[in-house]
Amino acid sequence: MAEQDNTNAIGLTRADYKGERSTLCPGCGHNTISAQILYACYEMDIHPSNIVKFSGIGCSSKSPTYFLSQSFGFNGLHGRMPSLALGAAFADTSMKVLGVSGDGDTASIGLGQFKHLIRRNLPMVYIVENNGVYGLTKGQFSATAEKGLELKYQGVNPFLPIDIAKEALIGNASFVARSFAGDPQQVRSLLKAALSHRGTSVLDIISPCVSFNNREDTLHSYQWGRQHEAPLHDIAFVPTRKSIILDEFKEGETKEVTLHDGSVVVLKKLEKDYDPTDKYQALQMLEEAERNRWLITGLIYVDPGQPALYDYMNLVEEPLNRVPAEKLRPSAEALQKINQSMG
């Protein structure tokens, strides 16, 4: 490797990507995801000042303070981070926008904003730390809790769950992936791919809540996740500045997906002939997985060509928040003309 072990290509150390100490429960899946966000940004040489973080409300939504203290961030309202992030993104469209949400935050109170974010395809990474419960309010069922789940104070959940990846796909998301907090390598690879995608990248990450939902037989537990995880493919992420494929990449059939910034995600097919650019197949696969109680992880769908929100806006090049005030006020002559037209 060319670069020093302890600095990346822009001369920063991992410490430069750190945040405050986490106050989440030890062992909480959200913590391992925070760590992977840190690594992914470090390894992709993204300067923290080029990242802006958003979240809703929940244990998961607290986590943006636990990574990247050198980035601006805004912890918004329950279920309404998408609108907050969208408005802010317009202030400087060159920033990488990173959002962290929970399953309650996204699939219950925030389902509307989530779907509309996707529909507009705002360039941002949207991470759902999905544990099937409301952690912060102490263990109520969330809308992603599986049917039949029994929790201590809640009884049995009678309803079928909302599948976040499926919702995203049906909502015409341009990037849909799922992973499992217990598989840090895959989380990191998918994060890197998501960070390179120009559009809304939905990452549904199963993230066990060790305090309220970690029974061995439930979908959102570590044990179950480890046993039932069915990775779609091995993923290697190749940033643009590197021209060779990583050593660890194994032999086998591959499919390359070129992302907007020119970087390439390489997917190794496993036993199934899986094409992540085929939406029909993606839907079919998710449906099948649900029937079989498989936890499908990996890049489920990507369309790098889908226009992003900014494409419709004809915006000036420089960040809007740096446009000098003089440029924001039309001339007196123009006002005179308006007055005349109304007179």
């Binding site: 918004g76 907050l84 915006l315």
Partner: peptide
């Protein structure tokens, strides 16, 4: 040097404005 977005509801309309104002 401006953008106008028709939101999905007022919850989002104000969320967008707060985000933009903050930005």
């Amino acid at each position: 040097n401006f953008a106008i977005v028709q939101a999905e509801d007022e919850l989002a309309a104000i969320g967008m404005a707060v985000g933009a104002g903050w930005g």
